[in-house]
Computed example of a mutant assay.
Amino acid sequence: MPPWFLLLICALPCEPAGISDVSLKTRPPGGWVMEGNKLVLICSVDRVNGNITYLWYRGALGFHLETKTQPALTAEFEISEMKQSDADQYYCAANDGQGPVPSELVSIHVRVPVSRPVLTFGDSGTQAVLGDLVELHCKAPRGSPPIFYQFYHESTILGNSSAPSGGGASFNFSLTAEHSGNFSCEASNGEGAQRSEVVALNLTGRQSEDPLRSPPQTVLQEPTYPNLPDPRQPEPLYENVNVVSGDDVYSLVYHTQQVLEPAAAQHVRTHGASETYPPSSLLWSFQVSSGIYSKPRINIGYMDYEDTM
């Protein structure tokens, strides 16, 4: 076999082969980046023979982002400020003149720090009654899940809750007198914590469902009689009027402590002179024909009001 033939056989497989492996890596690694931070997409090939054309794409449908040509095993494409809307799948391709070779898809996740949460109360609002079940609701308008919430009364932690899929979370507690004051909440998703504004809760005491009723007051109707000493004073009640003798009519009088002041004394005027009798019970008489009071006959007897009830 001629030597030149051997050299020809050896020369064919010994020529450099084309690109067989293309990979895409990210910085920061893992495909996670904070909103507002920079993302670098690094495209690499397994070998290089002259210039390599690198291409970067977004999404499975391949929206073209950038193209670079250089004689290097790697090339970088930078997105200076990532937004939440930039979260997607990315890939790159390398072409050494024999056709582009794509990399695998890499998912990029954009982490959004929580914004300042808003604390609200449930149906009760900021007016609540002692003993009520109060609901605290805390929600951060923005933030990547999961979000962890803590609820505070002044500087004391009341409890915590989480939102695995994002959004807000609630915490319920029974309202006591010790809960008077200010409330707040805090939201965190591992990218920093934010505290809400302070909200004051106004407490009111619960009124009894069965209030004690005052005992009924006896309303005494004030009878009117002519020629009485003081019309402003409650009048005695007369009954059992009987004619004893002659023109004299004697009346049995019931008198209670509620009618007269405790220290007051009952005065009866008899022919220009006055005599005082105890306010608890009083027996007196008057002459019907002339209207002149006669001296009471004490020996007739008297009856106390309470004994007659």
Rank of each mutant, 00 (worst) to 15 (best):
S107T: 15
R111M: 09
F151E: 06
Q84D: 10
H109G: 01
S180F: 02
D123L: 14
V112D: 03
F173S: 13
V110N: 02
M82N: 01
I157F: 01
A177V: 13
M82F: 02
G159P: 06
E186V: 12
G122T: 10
F151P: 07
L175R: 10
Q89N: 14
G97F: 12
V129F: 05
Y149N: 02
G131Y: 09
Y149G: 01
S80C: 04
P117F: 06
R116P: 00
C185K: 04
T120Y: 03
K83D: 11
V118S: 11
V129W: 03
C185W: 04
G125Q: 10
D132I: 01
I79E: 11
S107I: 08
G99K: 13
G131R: 07
S162C: 00
L119G: 00
D132H: 09
V112G: 00
I147E: 05
I79F: 13
Y149R: 04
N182F: 07
G125Y: 08
I79S: 05
A177H: 09
Q89W: 13
A94R: 02
N182E: 05
I147T: 11
T126Y: 08
G181L: 03
F148S: 13
I157P: 04
H109W: 10
P145H: 05
N182Y: 05
N172S: 13
M82L: 07
F121N: 05
T120L: 12
S161K: 07
H179I: 03
M82V: 04
A187T: 04
